[in-house]
């Protein structure tokens, strides 16, 4: 059972379909594992349905239903391809099943990053995977914009609490964030940065994994 969930307003923007693809990906990965949030999104989808029903209605052209029937007659339903084994989540479909085998770039002794922004060509946000070795610590940093993070593997703790696999957390400018990976497993997170992070300590620009 997860402790850290997206708030209802974020889920509402998901339900309405009003968020960028990387953000939707984070929510989707959380929903995969969190039945509580799934049922909240179900309710929000019902809210969307009721909103839609209460708007004005626009009549559709008389010939459209015929066109639709032609389409379904000429393009019959194909059976869904059979799934072998456990289905991959959307991130695994994108990057491969084993995230530890990715071409990680080591930044500090404990920390590695992989920028996957190129997979989201329409977005201005930076999308990165971060990996902290078990028990390792990342440099303290703040955020100029907002950072949305979901834990994909392992767990980390900072001054706000312990974040386990599939936990969801949003940090903003006020948060000084000094994550430490818990012992046992490397901690891998997916983060979306609306602006690059700023190191707070004595680290130089070179050491900052996120400033290019």
């Amino acid at each position: 059972m997860n402790q850290h969930h997206p708030d209802s307003l974020t889920l509402m923007e998901f339900s309405a379909g009003n968020m960028t693809e990387p953000h939707a990906l984070c929510i989707r990965l959380h929903l995969d594992q969190c039945s509580q949030c799934r049922s909240r999104v179900d309710m929000l989808d019902s809210l969307g349905a009721v909103m839609m029903e209460q708007q004005p209605q626009v009549s559709v052209s008389g010939s459209m239903f015929g066109t639709i029937l032609d389409r379904i007659d000429n393009d019959p339903v194909e059976p869904e391809p059979l799934q072998h084994g456990r289905p991959l989540n959307p991130l695994q479909k994108l990057l491969g099943e084993d995230l530890t085998k990715l071409p990680w770039k080591r930044q500090l002794c404990d920390a590695s990053v992989l920028d996957i922004s190129d997979h989201f060509p329409d977005q201005t946000e930076q999308v990165v995977l971060q990996k902290l070795t078990a028990g390792g610590r990342a440099p303290a940093h703040t955020h100029r914009g907002q950072e949305t993070t979901i834990v994909l593997q392992g767990a980390f703790s900072d001054n706000k609490g312990v974040f386990k696999q599939w936990d969801f957390v949003v940090l903003d400018e006020q948060d000084v964030h000094k994550p430490v990976a818990l012992q046992g497993d490397d901690c891998i997170t997916l983060s979306i940065l609306s602006a690059p992070v700023k190191l707070t300590g004595m680290f130089t620009r070179l050491l900052n994994p996120f400033i290019r």
Binding site: R28, L31, S35, D45, S46, P90, H119
Partner: peptide, 29 residues
Amino acid sequence: MTIETEDLWQIPGDNENEPVTSLHRLMSE
């Protein structure tokens, strides 16, 4: 497109043992 639209926006379905019962969901609408 690198990720299918449905992979991003479709809620993972067909989970039979959801804590919220079906009656509950229909009531909610």
